[in-house]
C-alpha cells in the first residue's frame, strides 16, 4: 500500500477530516476547536470547511462537553469531543465513566454511545503538576469504555478512524510530544487499526517489552542499542489499553520468558501492574525472571526542567531494566 510520511498531528487531522466528509453524523466539539483552529491544530481549517453546525466551539465547560457529547451520541450523532488536555478530562470524569461508559449497559442496550473523546496527554514540557499526567489506566479501569493511545502517525490515523466508526465510547489520547513526529500513513481512507489489536513493533526472542504511546519510542531505542550487544527485544505496542490484547502479550512472553513494561504513567495501579498481574496468572510456568516495570517516578511533577526529566522514563532506564530481567 502506498503511503506518505506525515506528522501524527497531520495524520489525526486527515483522519478526522475524512471521517467528517464520509459521515454527516460526525461532528467536532470542544474548547478552541473552531476559530482558534484547535489548541493542538488537529482541527485546523475545519470550521471554515465544515461550518459551525459541525465544528462547535464550546465554553470552558468540561462537564458539559463530556455530558452533551454523550447525549448527542445517544440521540444518534457521532460526536468527536476534544478535551484540550487529559488533565481537564478529570473535570468530565463523571460524564465519561458514569454516563458514556455505562448508559448502554445500565439501560440494557436501549441506547448506544458512539462517542470519541480526544485528549492530548503526556508530560515532560515543564507544564507542572496539574498539567502533567498520563492517567489512561484510570480510564481503562472501567468496562464500557475503550481506551486508545497511538504511538505513531500511521496507527493514530487508523485508530482514530476505528474509534469514530465504532458504536462504543472511546477515550482517545494523543501524546503531545508525538504530535510533530513523522511516520508513514497509508493513502487508503478506509485504513483501520482494529480496536483491541496490539502490534509487534519489533520482533525478538530474549525479552518482551510491553508498552504504548511514547513508551514505544523509548522501547525501540533501547532495543536498537541492546541489539548491538546481542540482546533481541520484542517490542509489543498495545495501542489500546481497553480492550487489552493480552493474547499477543502472552504469546510473546511464552517465547521470551521475560518481560519489561514501559509506560509514561505513574507506577501504582498502572498498566505495568495490570500486565504483570495477568502474566503471572496466565503464564506462570513460562516465567524465568521477575517482571520489571519502567514507569514515571511516583511524585507530582515539578516545574524545573532537570528534575522533571529525571522523573520521566527514557531509553536508558529501559536498557537497565532489560539487563536486570536478563540477570
Amino acid at each position: 500500500m502506498s503511503s506518505k510520511n506525515i506528522s501524527m498531528r497531520d495524520a489525526l487531522h486527515r483522519a478526522l477530516w475524512e471521517e467528517m466528509e464520509r459521515d454527516e453524523r460526525v461532528f467536532v466539539m470542544g474548547e478552541e476547536v473552531g476559530k482558534w483552529n484547535g489548541t493542538h491544530k488537529v482541527t485546523r481549517d475545519m470550521l471554515d470547511h465544515f461550518g459551525p453546525r459541525r465544528v462547535k466551539d464550546t465554553p470552558i465547560s468540561e462537564m458539559a462537553i463530556g455530558g452533551a457529547a454523550v447525549g448527542a451520541a445517544m440521540y444518534g450523532l457521532r460526536p468527536v469531543a476534544e478535551m484540550m488536555t487529559i488533565n481537564f478530562a478529570f473535570l468530565a470524569i463523571d460524564a465519561i465513566i458514569n454516563h458514556a461508559a455505562k448508559v448502554h449497559y445500565m439501560f440494557n442496550g436501549q441506547f448506544t454511545v458512539p462517542l470519541v473523546i480526544r485528549a492530548a496527554t503526556g508530560w515532560g514540557m515543564q507544564a507542572t503538576a496539574t498539567h502533567s499526567h498520563m492517567p489512561e489506566p484510570i480510564f481503562a479501569h472501567f468496562p464500557g469504555l475503550y481506551v486508545g493511545c497511538p504511538s505513531n502517525a500511521g496507527d493514530a490515523y487508523g485508530m482514530l478512524k476505528a474509534a469514530i466508526r465504532d458504536d462504543n465510547p472511546v477515550l482517545f489520547t494523543e501524546t503531545i510530544a508525538l504530535y510533530p513526529k513523522p511516520g508513514p500513513v497509508p493513502d487508503d481512507p478506509d485504513y483501520i487499526v482494529p480496536i483491541g489489536k496490539a502490534d509487534i513493533k519489533r520482533p525478538g526472542k530474549d525479552v518482551t517489552i510491553v508498552s504504548f504511546a511514547r513508551g514505544v519510542e523509548w522501547s525501540l531505542k533501547a532495543a536498537d542499542a541492546l541489539a548491538k550487544e546481542g540482546i533481541e527485544c520484542e517490542v509489543v505496542d498495545l495501542r489500546w489499553l481497553r480492550p487489552l490484547d493480552t493474547a499477543t502479550v502472552f504469546e510473546s512472553f511464552r517465547k521470551t520468558n521475560r518481560c519489561v513494561i514501559v509506560e509514561e504513567c505513574l507506577p501504582h495501579y498502572s498498566l505495568g501492574s495490570e500486565i504483570a498481574a495477568q502474566i503471572q496468572e496466565n503464564c506462570f510456568d513460562y516465567m524465568d525472571a521477575p517482571i520489571k516495570r519502567v514507569s514515571a517516578m511516583d511524585v507530582p511533577l515539578p516545574f524545573a526542567k532537570d528534575i522533571e526529566l529525571a522523573a520521566l522514563p527514557d531509553e536508558h532506564k529501559v536498557i537497565a531494566a532489560v539487563k536486570e530481567v536478563l540477570g
Binding site: F27, R53, M63, A64, I65, G66, G67, A68, A69, V70, G71, A72, A73, M74, Y75, G76, L77, P79, D94, A95, N98, H99, V103, F107, Q110, F111
Partner: peptide, 29 residues
Amino acid sequence: RQHNFWGGYAIVGGHLPLATGLALGARYN
C-alpha cells in the same frame, strides 16, 4: 427508547448535559 423516555439518572445533575446533547441532536438533524 420507544417512548422517547431517555431515563432516570442517579448522579445529581448528571443528566442535564445529556439533555443539552439530546437537544443538540434534535437541532442538528
